[in-house]
Nucleic acid binder design. Structure first.
Lengths: 218, 218
DNA sequence: GCGGGCCCTATACCTTGGTATATCAGGCCA
DNA sequence: TGGCCTGATATACCAAGGTATAGGGCCCGC
């Protein structure tokens, strides 16, 4: 437990996971909050989707507990709407008046769980933990990708072009021909690419290039 | 339409998709079969999971329509059991007595759809087409991977070792040291690897190596 | 026993890649 | 206008990769 210095980035904000709860019934909100707090989780209650969207979320792994029936808009619609934003919290649905098509729609859209009331407390807790774990993995992958993308952004346009062609397996002389450059210039750019991308070998660079360019969305 | 010679492999068996149906009710089986045949699909009816397992399935993209309630064993159990075999057909559930937890379990296990009776014919047809499309993609990916694996199998043990280290980014002289060889021997093996794996460049080989070794299961 | 595949090695030669140093031109901003 | 970054280029040298040819040892199956 003395490895605090290993990773300052993750050590400073402590990465305390949180659970956002959206339900218009105050008594249900309260009971969910106390249930989740009783197992040591940070619970953030909201009465509506709008209220949730106005709040700034912690920069930590989290999970969203969502009532299917919300004022104004259904929880399923809100789930779909969220996927168009940069909020990618795993969703656990709870509902008092659900049916099979609803649950199937929710699960198809990637929900972690769909619980019909009454449900066992432990089932919700398990689902929330699963969601948090899923978000933790997603954030880890995204972090690694962001590092790479930041390095990629630091490349000049020429360097990016050269990197693309190197990763495609072209020889320096072919790259020079394609970009109308001398071979020596290609070598210079290539060296810069290796340095800036922190690639220790060509296979290393190839894998980095594939990660950066294949994962265009996220 | 004159590209018949482009891909003999896929041209010969015609790749006609099929739909396997497991339901113990003969009248339901019959109506499902005629529904699916009416839209041009090959339907294969079975009265039980056992009967299905005894039948040799076509080497084509397919889909499985499964009643949740089966004699002996539930459809959900059978779905889980199938995932332990080499049968990876997408599953569309139908049921007369389903509930939300069942549908959630099915969807978590990767089901394409979960339809409660009565359902619209078109919903089933849509689900089956989705399943077939999913299976087609899976088979395509598997085909490509099998090609690579066959080539990899044709490598001698030494060549495999060299390939691993080359893909890891080691220099020939480092590989030689690690395997207690002379550098020239490494070059010979390396050339064999490139030839046998049909890699046209080092980046090409790196990607092949990653596909072959990362996809250990399937 | 003998061919053949696998493994290892060597010599020789050529191509490709990598690095260092230096120069020059254009654009941008204090 | 002078400094700085980017881009392009050159010379020179060295390291690494690739190919061709040739040969030896080992083991297995015919």
């Amino acid at each position: 437990m003395t490895d605090r210095s290993l990773s300052d980035r993750s050590a400073i904000p402590a990465e305390t996971p949180f659970v956002a709860i959206i339900d218009d019934d105050p008594s249900i909100r309260d009971s969910l909050v106390s249930l989740l707090r009783s197992v040591g989780l940070t619970a953030l209650p909201f009465a509506s989707a709008q209220e949730f969207l106005q709040q700034r979320l912690p920069d930590a792994p989290g999970c969203l507990v969502l009532d299917v029936r919300l004022p104004g808009q259904s929880g399923l619609e809100f789930q779909r709407e969220l996927s168009g934003t940069d909020i990618h919290l795993p969703v656990v649905f709870i509902t008092g008046h659900g049916d099979i098509p609803m649950s199937v729609t929710a699960m198809k859209a990637g929900a972690v769980e769909f619980l019909a009331k009454p449900f066992r407390d432990q089932d919700l807790i398990d689902a929330v933990h699963t969601g948090i774990e899923r978000d933790r993995d997603r954030r880890r992958a995204l972090d690694a990708l962001c590092d790479l993308r930041e390095r990629f952004r630091s490349l000049t346009p020429r360097e990016r072009e050269v990197m693309r062609l190197v990763a495609a397996g072209q020889l320096n002389k072919q790259i020079a021909a394609e970009l109308q450059l001398s071979e020596i210039t290609v070598k210079v750019h290539r060296a810069s690419v290796m340095r800036k991308m922190q690639a220790r070998s060509l296979p290393d660079l190839v894998r980095i290039a594939d990660k950066v360019t294949l994962a265009g969305d996220a």
